[in-house]
């Protein structure tokens, strides 16, 4: 069973993928909740434009998204130059850039899932909490958030899964540097490009299947537990 043993290079790609995906989901979650709130509750001019922009990565070819990120967040790009100069944050050709690309690609899935559960929340319960003395922020934290938690978790899992599989936008934005930006998908792609790389590609494919299944099962389990807490004894 020697062929199942992962090489150092493969392990690095797996660790990097897990790190990139986790950071992508964690960093995009607060923005995802805010945007979902704005889309579900807000009344403002340009709401459909915001909705369109959020969903753009879902429709555009990933390579196009990656190229746009390169233009905007590259060292010479308007946003990238600003972040580099004032905050010391660099995205281009770093693992943080891979995380940004994954976050952008997973964002529509995250927002959609949270928004759907926000739409389903009974606003009357929020009114009731208000008459009991809770300010809008407390109403959100003690009533709205617990009620949308299943949707938030489902959105996080979807976004995580999307990040694990992200390829096009990442490779366009931050290239394919082993140990820095070479994620699981990029590593599998690289293996298929060299003679005799099939075994490595197969090993990583098995790992990808295991991680995806684990994420799916974890989400099902959490949704089940929360649903149980809300609906039954």
């Amino acid at each position: 069973m020697d062929w199942l043993t992962l090489s150092e290079e493969e392990l690095t790609a797996i660790r990097l993928s897990l790190l990139v995906s986790t950071v992508a989901v964690a960093a995009s979650l607060p923005f995802g909740i805010l945007v979902a709130l704005a889309l579900s509750r807000g009344r403002f001019v340009g709401k459909s434009v915001l909705n369109g922009i959020v969903h753009l990565p879902l429709i555009l070819p990933p390579v196009v998204t990656g190229f746009l990120l390169l233009i905007l967040f590259g060292r010479k790009g308007p946003i990238g130059a600003f972040l580099d100069q004032y905050l010391g944050i660099v995205f281009s050709f770093r693992w943080t850039g891979a995380a940004l690309a994954c976050a952008v690609m997973g964002f529509p899935l995250l927002v959609r899932s949270i928004r759907l559960s926000l739409d389903a929340v009974d606003r009357k319960l929020e009114d009731a909490a208000g008459t009991l003395g809770a300010s809008p922020i407390w109403v959100f934290l003690t009533v709205t958030l617990p009620l949308i938690l299943p949707g938030v978790i489902a959105g996080m899992i979807l976004s995580f899964a999307k990040s694990m599989g992200e390829f096009g936008a990442t490779i366009t934005f931050v290239s394919n540097i082993p140990g820095e930006t070479q994620t699981l998908s990029a590593a599998i792609y690289t293996f298929t490009q060299v003679p005799g790389g099939d075994l490595g590609a197969m090993r990583l494919t098995i790992v990808a299947i295991v991680i995806s299944m684990a994420a799916l099962l974890a989400s099902e389990f959490m949704a089940h537990m929360i649903g149980k807490r809300v609906n039954f004894e």
Partner: peptide, 28 residues
């Protein structure tokens, strides 16, 4: 509304489904 401190009993009870009865009672 949250600064008036007027208790409101609605036609439908509007209890918080994610809290126990005790949690609902002590919410305010």
């Amino acid at each position: 509304k949250h600064r008036r401190r007027f208790g409101y009993v609605f036609q439908e009870a509007r209890l918080f489904p994610h809290l126990t009865v005790k949690g609902n009672l002590t919410y305010g």
